[in-house]
Amino acid sequence: MFERADELMIAYQQGDMDALDQLYLLLKGPIYSFVYRYSRDEQLSIDIVQDTFIKLHRSKHLYEKEKGKISSYLYQIAYRLMVDKLNRRKKWRSFLPFLTSVDQKEVDLADRMSVREAIAALSDVHRPIVLLFYYHDLTHEEIANVLNIPKGTVKSRLHYAIKKLKEELGGEENVSRSL
């Protein structure tokens, strides 16, 4: 899928607008899922997906295939836009606390709730690493590029996040109980 995305990006850089449509169809889902799992805000996730492609359209000439896959490049744009937006919101909420939006929870799926809660309970520096590694199959190196941190930091944070998730979800406990 990602090789196809790289080919489409090259075609788009050469002026093929249909390639952009196909690239959007291919990558809007993964980007939305990443932002949604991080923020749990549907409207924010939709806005970030759109802003990511607007930014790509404005600066398509800046992408270089040699530096990495287009999917990683788009995750990087989306992550930066999302962090900026969330920081701005945090500032506004400190002045106007009633602007807090309702946390949309699905109460009918208890198990899913717990994994959602466990991921949400991870800190802002650990959460994107788990999401990009587990759900989006990015390598340590690609995650390091997306988040602009050293590869070693990615590894140590990933191990810490896994330990935290196991604590939150009670992995060993449940396994021994089921046995």
């Binding site: 952009l20 449509d21 959007y24 809007k28 889902g29 939305y32 899922s33 949604y36 799992r37 549907e42 939709i46 997906v49 759109q50 802003d51 492609f53 607007i54 359209h57 198990d111 899913r112 717990s114 994994v115 959602r116 466990a118 991921i119 587990y134 759900y135 896994i162 998730l165 196991k166 979800l169 992995g171 060993e172 449940n174 396994v175």
Partner: peptide, 25 residues
């Protein structure tokens, strides 16, 4: 080697809504 954790994480599905492509905000 984290099979339980994997099974839990796999339960977290996201439904992607229909998002139109805009090239201007």
């Amino acid at each position: 080697n984290e099979r339980f954790l994997q099974s839990k994480l796999d339960e977290y599905h996201v439904n992607v809504p229909d998002i139109p492509l805009y090239l201007r905000k």
